[in-house]
């Protein structure tokens, strides 16, 4: 695995990105450059386009009807900045490197093991033992191993919400992505479970470039190295670590927005 998080070079460049669904613009003239420095959090009122921006990065918007896009998005893939819409890059290959976890845990209604095994079987050419090793590795990475190692064959649906979300995270990590896109990963979880996931994300930021959508100011403050504030399909503010640390800026900003 190449060293994923290198300092000071941008890993994501967006230039003049417009996205519309059924002719209704959702993102307008987005320009953005992200370099390392922790988790990037997209913040904004609902309908501000933050989820669409997130989905633009793994081209998931294209799976929704009536989608139109213009503009460039470059991501650092295999060490080089590459335009993700160029024909040489297949959507599926892109999405394997740019993993995504959704708002509500979406485990498959099968066993815990099969949840992790199915994508590995379909996407990688690992043999049986390697797959099992990989499963243990990622389950440890999300701190789920000790809780489920005895019952890998049991249905994933009997896990608690937080466990399910960590399983979804593990399922994505199993494919060794370089990026992690998180769409309000704790929205459906209670406070305590959210805390645990947040701590987990802070650990994971060492190995993955993480971009997350959040609805909570508290959460953004806790995990973010950079906050992008959006409104009506535009980026209206960017805060770096100092901006986040300053006790006045963020609340003031949000008051304007909501």
């Amino acid at each position: 695995m190449e060293p994923t998080v290198t300092a000071d070079k941008p890993f994501c460049l967006i230039a003049d990105l417009h996205v519309a669904f059924h002719g209704r613009p959702v993102l307008k003239a987005i320009d953005l450059s992200l370099d390392s420095g922790g988790i990037t959090v997209l913040l904004g009122p609902s309908g501000s386009g933050k989820t669409t921006l997130l989905r633009a990065l793994n081209r998931l918007n294209e799976d929704f009807p009536g989608h139109l896009r213009s503009g460039r998005i470059q991501l650092r893939l295999a060490g080089e900045l590459q335009e993700i819409h160029q024909p040489e890059i297949s959507v599926t290959a892109l999405r394997r490197q740019v993993g995504m976890v959704f708002q509500t845990p979406n485990v498959l209604p099968t066993s815990i093991q099969r949840n992790l095994l199915l994508p590995l079987k379909l996407v990688t050419d690992l043999d049986r033992e390697e797959r099992e090793a990989r499963i243990e590795e990622v389950l440890r990475e999300v701190h789920l191993w000790s809780e489920v190692k005895e019952r890998l064959k049991e249905s994933a649906t009997i896990l608690s919400g937080g466990q399910q979300q960590r399983l979804c995270l593990a399922r994505t990590l199993a494919l060794k992505p370089h990026y992690l896109l998180l769409d309000e990963p704790t929205a459906s979880l209670d406070f305590k479970t959210s805390r645990a996931i947040e701590d987990l994300l802070l650990e994971l930021q060492e190995n993955y470039r993480i971009i997350a959508v959040s609805h909570s100011l508290r959460q953004a403050r806790k995990i973010a190295g950079r906050i992008i504030v959006m409104k009506d399909g535009e980026i209206v503010h960017q805060l770096d670590r100092e901006g986040i640390a300053c006790p006045e800026t963020l609340p003031q900003l949000l008051e304007e927005l909501f």
Partner: peptide
């Protein structure tokens, strides 16, 4: 910087649904 309506076919290629 660039508000207002915009022709989506002009800026980049039209995406076909994946």
């Amino acid at each position: 910087r660039n508000s207002g309506k915009r022709d989506f076919t002009a800026g980049g290629r039209l995406t076909s649904p994946a």
